[in-house]
Simulated assay, not measured.
Amino acid sequence: MSRIASAEYPTAALRLMDGFSLEMTGKDVAGLEEAHASTPPGTRINVTFLGNEDLEMRIGAAAAVARAGFVPVPHISARRLSSQAQLEAFLARLQAVGATDHVFAVGGDPARPEGPYPDALSVIRSGVLQRHDVQEVAIAGYPEGHPEIPNDVLWEHLEAKHAALAEQGLATVLLTQFAFDTGPVMAWIREVRSRGIDAQIRIGTPGPAGVKRLISFARRFGIGANAMIVKKYGFSLTNLMGTAGPERFIGGLAADLDADPDAGDVKLHFYTFGGLPATSEWVSSYVGDIQRQETA
C-alpha cells in the first residue's frame, strides 16, 4: 500500500513528511555528523534522557544538534530527576547552548521516581520550564495505550498537561509512541480532536531497522505486533532476518489523513532504531521518490 498510496496521494504524503523530526541518544554525535548531509536544515532532533547517559552527554548532544543547524528537542525524564536542583541545573546548561526553546517532557522508565517528579505533569506544573526560556513542550501520546497505565489515566493526564501548558503560555506538541498500524493511530487522533486539543501531533514512526529489533521494541513498549498487523506493515513474524521500513505505514497514514479534514496538523517523528544516518538517508530517498511520482 505504501508506494501505491503515495502515488495516489502524493500531496498528502509530502505534507505528512514535511517537517519530520528525528531522535538520537546522547552517545550518537558521530551519527549526527554522518546524517548531516541527508537531513534538511532546521529539522527537529530529539535528544534522549536515558539511564546510561550522563549530563555531559546530553548537553553535548543538544549543543551538537544546534551547531549543525538543526533544532534540539532535549528530553526531560521526570522520574529520573533526583531533585528540583538537578532539573534547574540541566535546563540552565541547555539554555547556555541554545537548546531550551523546545523540550519533550515525559514520565520515564524507572518504576519509582528518583526525586520529586512522578510524572511529566509535575514537571510542567513546577514552573521551572518557564524560567529557562522554554517556548514549546512536547508531551507523550499512546495510540495503543501504555502497558502499565490505564487509558483513562492517560487521557486525564494528557488533557491536564495541555491545559497547564496553555495556562503558562507555552505551546504543546503531542508526540506519540511508535506504531505499526494506522487504525489505532487514526482513532487516537480523532479522540484527541474530539477533546478540543488542537496541538500539532507528531506520530511516532519506526525508521528502517532489523525485524527482530523492531519486534523487540514493540514488545517492550506494548505495541501491537501480531501476525496480521506486521503483515499489513510489511514484514512477517516467520522471517525475522531482514529489515523493514515504514513505507506502507506512511502511505496508509497519508491516505487516511487526506480523507479526514478534521485531523489537523499531523507530522511524523522517526524513532531511529536502525541508526540516525540510516533513517535520515531513508527519509531523503523516500521523499525524493514521492516527488518524482508527483511530477511523473
Rank of each mutant, 00 (worst) to 15 (best):
M1L: 09
M1E: 10
S2D: 14
I4F: 15
S6E: 13
S6R: 14
Y9N: 15
P10K: 12
A12D: 08
L16N: 01
M17N: 09
D18Q: 14
G19P: 07
V29E: 09
A30C: 06
A30E: 12
A30F: 08
S38H: 04
G42D: 06
T43H: 11
T43E: 10
I45E: 10
L50I: 01
E53H: 02
L55I: 10
V71K: 13
V73P: 01
V73M: 15
H75R: 09
A78G: 01
R79P: 04
R80D: 13
L81E: 02
S83T: 06
Q86K: 05
L87H: 04
E88C: 04
F90N: 11
L91T: 03
A96N: 11
V97E: 00
H102V: 08
A105G: 00
A105H: 00
G107L: 03
G115N: 04
G115W: 04
D119N: 15
D119F: 05
V123G: 01
V123W: 02
I124G: 08
S126D: 06
G127D: 10
H132V: 03
Q135T: 13
A140Y: 03
A140H: 05
H146E: 09
I149G: 09
H162N: 15
L165K: 09
A166T: 14
L170W: 10
L170G: 09
L170D: 12
V173L: 08
F178V: 03
A179L: 07
F180Q: 02
T182K: 11
T182S: 13
M186Q: 05
M186P: 05
A187R: 15
I201R: 01
I203V: 08
G204H: 04
G204M: 03
P206Q: 00
G207T: 02
A209T: 02
V211P: 02
R213D: 03
I215R: 01
A225W: 11
Y233L: 07
T238P: 06
N239C: 12
N239G: 12
G242I: 04
A244Y: 00
G245Q: 10
P246I: 00
R248V: 10
I250Y: 01
A255D: 04
D258T: 09
A259E: 02
D265S: 13
V266F: 08
L268E: 13
L268D: 13
F270W: 10
Y271C: 00
T272L: 06
T272K: 05
G274Q: 00
S280W: 05
W282L: 00
S284T: 08
S285K: 14
Y286P: 11
Y286R: 15
T295L: 14
